[in-house]
Design a protein around this nucleic acid. Sequence first.
DNA 1: GTCTATACAGCGATAGAC
DNA 2: GTCTATCGCTGTATAGAC
Lengths: 203, 203
Amino acid sequence: MAVRASNVRRGRQGRGERGGERRRQEIISKSARLFATKGFDATSMRDIAAAAGLNAGSLYYHFKSKDELFLAVHSAGVESAMEAVRKALEGLTDPWERLEAAAAAHASALFESADLMIMLVPNFPGGFSEFRDELVRQRDEYEQIIRDLVTDLDLPADIDRDVFRLHFLGALNWTQTWYRPNSRLTPEDIGRQLVRILRCSRE
Amino acid sequence: MAVRASNVRRGRQGRGERGGERRRQEIISKSARLFATKGFDATSMRDIAAAAGLNAGSLYYHFKSKDELFLAVHSAGVESAMEAVRKALEGLTDPWERLEAAAAAHASALFESADLMIMLVPNFPGGFSEFRDELVRQRDEYEQIIRDLVTDLDLPADIDRDVFRLHFLGALNWTQTWYRPNSRLTPEDIGRQLVRILRCSRE
DNA sequence: GTCTATACAGCGATAGAC
DNA sequence: GTCTATCGCTGTATAGAC
């Protein structure tokens, strides 16, 4: 049975969670950046330890395996994206405006929000049998938000809403592959452009 | 200096290329499937050897390194996609019709064309300093075809054609992540739907 | 909670027989 | 052209001192 996302691996230490939790967050953050840059397989625990200023063995005090660390990173990334999108939607009522705000927030989260991304997870690492369900569950929760946005859209009858949503998220996530900062466009611009492309001349 | 794509690693054996070339193709094909399924790093030369019915060491008669094998797979994938798209464009003149045909061909190639895909290559494997330029060159050659298609489109002035192309290819390539055969839609359907979404009410 | 040291598996690649 | 055997290295993960 899958674990609740936010409660994954908590409370190992007796009660002194003050500094330990910060350390844990630091590891997650550094791992996220490395996973996103080099890929999961190409990132070694030694790399992560070096980035976080620990020795390799010490990581295993906080996470009992590399896969579990990945799960924590994924969880943090999804949660951060959900929060960003929810916040961006506040007060907006026009369906296309809402989609545009979500696209901008998603794109932005992909690159800027601290270091947590991995929305993508093109193919989940290796076997991963134990955590696969939990990863899928996390992603589905986020996708539901987008699904609702698409439902509210006024689309021609011959457009499949599922395909629309998947292409929408696909284009967005793929930006990871080609977008580099210090371009003339910000991530927000990229997201908004996408919605303008999808929206076309409609009002 | 980079090697010509099609001539990469040819003519090792004296002149008996009859069976050897078939073997080589078989290895490329099986590798492509494995790379696409498990990722480059997670696929070992032993995996490939097993899939191709060889022993691990024998692979190095055909390819002098794993990176070089990847290059060959990538090259075959791009060339196959280019051919499919070029063929699909034959005789078509309407810009949106041409884009739709290209999308269908691209999506189809991603899943069906033998087993060569890896259009994607989200981030090229590891260091790859030696082959990187050649990989980028191969991809650029294909992207130029799409670029030309987008140039011919009649788009509103506020739509950036580069962003349009990248989102278009992004959505298409991302299908790899979610599409599974025996869905109610074929890859061609997915591609055509995408163009219909982009096209919207425009004519 | 972090360190050092290390076990042990799996990788890419090579050598040499056939 | 393929096999077997193996080298050297790097990876994850663990044990035990501090």
